[in-house]
Design a protein around this nucleic acid. Sequence first.
DNA 1: GTCCAGGTCTTCC
DNA 2: GGAAGACATGGA
Length: 300
Amino acid sequence: MSCRTEFAVRDYNLEATLASGQAFRWRQEPAGWEGVVNARWVRLQAGTRAIVAETAQPPEDWEWLARYLQVAVDLQAVLAAFPSDPCLQAAVQSCRGLRLLKQDPWECLASFILSSNKQIRQIEQVVARLCERWGEACERWGEAVAVPSGHLARFAFPSARRLAAGTETELRACKMGFRAPYLLETARRIASGVADLEAIGQMPVNEARRELMKLPGVGRKIADCVLLFGFGFGEAFPIDVWMARALRRFYFPGQEPGLKHLQEFAEAHFGPFAGYAQQYLFHFMRCRVARASKRTDGRR
DNA sequence: GTCCAGGTCTTCC
DNA sequence: GGAAGACATGGA
């Protein structure tokens, strides 16, 4: 098996997908997007009708990456099922080809516990520190993965078992602040079997959400992120500050509906692929703000 | 220096 | 069950 392969895709916006705040380990380098998936170093490049993937060592197969990237998803069918409201259609037009990834549930859960009240850039930094800090030097948490010769070291996401053996002080050293005890206790519950992510993934969505919300540091929003990005429950619709802002502005102008109201509206309005709609709206909002601040910079 | 960030938890009413 | 404040840290 070669270290290189191509996934034939249509309508796949790799950049929007990897940079849309659903995964936190991708870096844009001159040679492509580099990340770590399933403890393997990966480099991705968007071709015209394919994604070119490269690993450091030949994998036994490519199924794990095809699944992660969700290359088999029929995006046309997803978009066709969207309601035809102008706001969502504008979001789709602005970043056509945006996809949802299918991530490892534990990595997703741990990353989003670290996400609360933090900017995406900061989440990426904390996650990177978590993976690197006790990597090669200490071999306690992170596990160095094979990279191309001469390449900077990268590390696998530390398992729940590894984190559970750490201390709150060690976690705080990764600059995660008050989230440290949440992550530690959640890791311990999973490592000990008190909580079983595999079982949760098999439950009906509402039951799975209830179980996730029993974990410390996991409320409705983070639970929905894990349901959507980690378990692939397409109907999950995480509402964070950006989404609440977007929904209020576009669907309830002049009103101030509460979170619960927004949640009920989203469930009813966006249909079976609500999670996809959410990601389009989320990315759309962030791009609008980025463009607006760029314009402001230009005037200075 | 101030405000706010892909929230959650605790306390208080 | 809803509102208000605390919580670490760093970017804008």
